[in-house]
């Protein structure tokens, strides 16, 4: 039998289908953060779990080969910087940090509403998902370097 990283074929096949659904669900939670329970953090965690699912099913080597970890790092820190930038835009437009300068647009209770809050949710979602995945990835890297004996 061929030596391959990760779990069995069944798990891999199921993961291949389900990962996209999980990511989609995470995006849904993030986008509806200002209307329903959840939001940037919860949706971000769901997306990070999708990546973790991939890592568990296919093994670390697969992630190392196909996912550019430093790119995830960059997404994480740039989304945090973006959050601050939106806050500073609040100062520029209405004089207060994180002021909701887009609040006049959209209709209440609809997806297109709540001004900057959905944007902040998206930014936080990106930050949390990438951050959480990179944290777990970094912890698993330790394990590779010095075997757990």
């Amino acid at each position: 039998m061929k030596q391959s990283s990760g779990m069995t074929l069944i798990v891999k096949t199921v993961t291949r289908v389900s990962v996209w659904l999980i990511i989609l669900y995470g995006i849904y939670i993030i986008l509806h953060g200002h209307l329903t329970p959840g939001g940037g953090f919860a949706g971000g965690v769901i997306i990070a779990l999708a990546f973790l699912n991939l890592m568990l099913a296919y093994g670390r080597d697969f992630i190392k080969k196909w996912v550019n970890i430093s790119f995830l790092h960059d997404i994480e820190s740039s989304s945090a910087a973006l959050f601050l930038a939106i806050g500073i835009l609040g100062i520029a437009f209405s004089g207060y940090f994180l002021a909701n300068f887009l609040s006049g647009y959209g209709t209440l209770y609809r997806l297109y509403s709540a001004g900057t809050i959905p944007i902040l949710n998206i930014v936080i979602g990106a930050k949390v998902s990438m951050g959480l995945f990179v944290v777990v990835w970094a912890l698993s890297i330790f394990h590779i370097d010095k075997g757990g004996k």
């Binding site: 960059d74 820190s77 910087a81 806050g87």
Partner: peptide, 20 residues
């Protein structure tokens, strides 16, 4: 008006450092 910058400046610097 300078008050939030005591927090914004170091925080933004930290993220910029990780970025660039």
């Amino acid at each position: 008006m300078i008050l939030p910058f005591f927090i914004i400046i170091p925080l933004l610097t930290a993220f910029l450092i990780t970025l660039i």
